[in-house]
Design a protein around this nucleic acid. Structure first.
Lengths: 206, 206
DNA sequence: CTGCATCACTGCAAGTTTGCAGTTGCGCAA
DNA sequence: TTGCGCAACTGCAAACTTGCAGTGATGCAG
């Protein structure tokens, strides 16, 4: 759990409730002898009403997984300037991807993926959703940026943004695939390695 | 704490919050090195906002003491009939008096009275308030009762109800006084004794 | 196959909590 | 005395939770 100080009482209680629901859902789901985890059971375990449950999560699965709708942080003014844009974008994608899960949940999440493989589908969905948000943010930034707003060689900023996001996504996809399990954690260290590899390869081919 | 099952989630949380505030307030107040217990400290300890504090208690003192506004239970149909009306009324007064406090708090309440004698004033106030409610309930019941509604010997039902309540209050006042400390607990056993004494005395004098 | 129960999920009104901007009373320093 | 600051307490709108009465999908006994 992140530091809950410096949050307003309201915000603090909201995260507490979020975690209470997610924890209850995940624990109940991982309980071996649990066949059908009902929303009622989760809600009662978390000490809230069923209606509140659905105020926090659109589906039971999201509660078990602990999914949040991805949030793209405000881009720095100079995000589009200078060297290393692809790398910065990759890091942004990683940040956004991580923002869709409860922090520090990696172990339990692995267990969940093992026991309920269909949750991987949901994970993939969230990834795609996050990528799309990143694309939109970058497209907007490009449209407002003097060096990019005119498009490049007849390509629209939308195309440029889309391509950048795709390219930047490569190292992440690589990591997920080479990590074997898609549920495996993405270490920042291995990301750097993957980025190096990517860039080396890119230079060799161009 | 009373059984919280069979209460709706809403009711349950309300009592939980009530106890959280009262507990925080009482404990902070009893802390030796506490000079000024602020509403802010109590609220923060209880995990609620200051505004919510005042949704539960009109004053800080009431929170420390754990005061509720007294509730008179519905009188049984035959409350006014038959022998022992005074005794029944005394028991009603005791019930109402007890309803103004958190249950099972007697020990801590004694400490509070020791440390903050001015709380006794508040206690007295609540008692009086409760007595008045009992008076009103009985007056209403009398007005609706065929045997009483006409008044007695020219006295109004209000007078009769007031006098009954006064008379019924005697054993309680006796107990409080003879118990030394007004903060002392009222045992049901000693109440019975006091009632006996009262009736004996009454018979002797009449 | 058919009614019936169960469970996920939604809409809405009513109840609760929070944040915030006051107002008031009180002690204390200049 | 005057002004200041602190802390109790209030009013109100906005945010949040709850209860409840659904709807629709799925499975299962008869």
């Amino acid at each position: 759990m992140p530091p809950t100080d410096s949050l307003s009482l309201r915000e603090r209680k909201k995260t507490e409730t979020w975690h209470a629901i997610h924890d209850a859902a995940a624990e109940l789901a991982l309980d071996d002898d649990t066949k059908h985890v009902t929303v009622e059971a989760i809600s009662s375990e978390a000490g809230i009403s069923q209606r509140t449950f659905f105020n926090y999560f659109p589906t039971k699965e999201d509660a078990i997984l602990g999914v949040r709708t991805p949030r793209v942080p405000e881009l720095p003014e100079d995000f589009l300037d200078g060297e290393g844009l692809i790398q910065r974008t990759t890091e942004l994608l990683l940040t956004v991807g991580r923002s869709t899960y409860a922090e520090g949940d990696a172990d339990r999440r692995s267990l969940l993926f093992e026991k309920f493989p269909h949750l991987l589908l949901r994970r993939r969905e969230m990834m795609i959703e996050g990528e799309d948000l990143v694309y939109q943010a970058i497209a907007t930034a490009m449209a407002e940026h003097p060096d990019w707003s005119e498009g490049l060689n007849g390509h629209s900023v939308e195309s440029a943004a889309r391509m950048l996001t795709m390219a930047a996504g490569v190292p992440l996809r690589y990591l997920i695939v080479s990590g074997g399990m898609p549920g495996a954690r993405l270490e920042t260290g291995s990301l750097t390695t993957a980025l190096d590899l990517y860039q080396d390869l890119y230079r060799k081919l161009s």
